[in-house]
Design a protein around this nucleic acid. Structure first.
Lengths: 119, 119
DNA sequence: TTATCACATGAACAATTATTCATATGAAGG
DNA sequence: CCTTCATATGAATAATTGTTCATGTGATAA
């Protein structure tokens, strides 16, 4: 976290305290951390697959596991993460728990990401 | 990666091969991996801060380090990651290297993420 | 060339994390 | 009650990754 030994302190920015101004214009650290955390949740193949599987309809945990060829435990663990970030919601129906995308924000995010990936 | 010992195979999905159909509708694994990887790049506080710092104007490495109170080495390492994902571009001017956002995709992504974070 | 500045990079370490295995919870039916 | 099915969760392990430190590269100026 501390600066390295000898920074030349030679700013290329025009103006004297341009660096401080720029720093003060950044959102609070807490907000930036939450933002990074949100992206981190999307940043895992398994979770992305789960979200994609839920694109068209809600699914229960076992079905997600079968669709993705994954263990029930692993899926459940990741659903927990997705739940914590409010990316999915769920409802109970007997023994089964059905998960679905929480809102259209999720679709928008993935769609935007896809645009970049597909160049 | 292999399935767990004894899945009951009791699909809740209507229809017999609904599971296979859903699986086949998913994008290729490679694409989903790339998508996750893109989000993973956004999923780090340092890189998010760097991108934010570049929102208004291009900056050289040393200035970014000063704005974010980080070591030059750490910034450089992360710029490498951002470069590899085509989120930033750069140009050389004498000894300094100036980085800037590659396109408006980056702004859109961050803006969308912010909407979710700010509830 | 030699010295210095700005940046890049390799290695090592610490911290985070996704999966597996085993077990616990909770609902429905007998 | 007891059993079974569906899901959740805790612990342990392996793999990934961000930072630091030290050093390398490339450009400018004397």
């Amino acid at each position: 976290m501390s600066d390295q030994a000898s920074l030349p302190e030679q700013a290329h920015l025009s103006g004297n305290n341009a660096i401080e101004t720029l720093r003060d214009d950044l959102p609070d650290d807490e907000i930036l951390y939450d933002l990074a955390e949100l992206f981190r949740v999307f940043g895992d193949s398994t979770r992305i697959k789960i979200l994609y599987a839920l694109f068209e309809s809600e699914l229960c945990v076992g079905d997600i596991a079968q669709v993705l060829h994954m263990s029930q435990s692993s899926v459940s663990h990741q659903l927990r993460v997705l739940k914590a970030s409010k990316l999915v919601k769920f409802r109970r129906e007997g023994k089964a728990v059905f998960y679905s995308l929480d809102d259209d924000h999720v679709r928008s995010m993935i769609a935007l990401g896809m645009e970049h990936v597909e160049e």
